[in-house]
Design a protein around this nucleic acid. Sequence first.
DNA 1: AGTGCGACCCGAACGC
DNA 2: TGCGTTCGGGTCGCAC
Length: 273
Amino acid sequence: MPELPEVETVKNVLKKNLIGLKILEVDVNYLDMIKTNLKEFKEKLVNENFIDIKRYGKWLVFETSNYYLVSHLRMEGKYYYTKRCELENHEHVVFKLDNGYFLRYKDVRKFGVMYLVDKDKLFIDTPLKNLGYEPFNNKLDVDYLMDKFKNKRISIKTVLLDQEIISGLGNIYVDEVLFKSSISPFKKANLLNRLECQKIIDTSREILSAAIKHGGTTIRSYTSSLGVTGNYQNYLLVHTKKICSICNSGIKVSKINGRSTYYCPNCQGEANE
DNA sequence: AGTGCGACCCGAACGC
DNA sequence: TGCGTTCGGGTCGCAC
């Protein structure tokens, strides 16, 4: 499932292939995937050139001559850059390009979404308007986190999944960050001190850098797609693990706000601490 | 404003 | 074995 490192990898591969190419045709097979006006989506993108591809948090943003195409892969969305023109199952959006290739978006669960907006509306008419700082942003510091956490009486696990505070951490990496910071996922965010906030910042940067270096994490073995067959799963310390690599205690799994959460009760503390 | 939860999906995993 | 049920994953939108 793509989190920030996976999306970064996809972005880099797409960028290598798509820049300069023109869109000749747009097919949409699952209408609800397009969250802005469907007719405009199909018409406006014709004859647009790909100029740049960016990533904001887990969002992928294609810059074309006149618009931004905003895409979120959710759990299983993937892009294929291919000469194949036969429609495969679960391919919901297909772009025909002017070099004989196609950009094909495939998403079994249909969870992904796309927006098409004018260039001055990227941070106004899309969910990007709510994104918090990325882990690598220098503005993400202890004062920022202390301020964001001060009225949050919910678990730090839930708060770190909130993209409006830090953007780009998903379920796997939040577990890793909290483990490496020796903080219980159950701890209320407003109870964290400055040292703990600093640890969250430092470990987020460390873990995401390492994950990007290894191409992201492939937990379920879906068929590989454009650039997303990472091997960071081999470096996970707590998520999906049974035994703590630090103290040999059994790793516990609990639901926090509906999300499966792996933690070491000995190194990080228990539910009621 | 903060919080909680349903909706969105469907293949895989599970339970009987 | 075969069938029905549950689960998971990120985000939005809504109710309180």
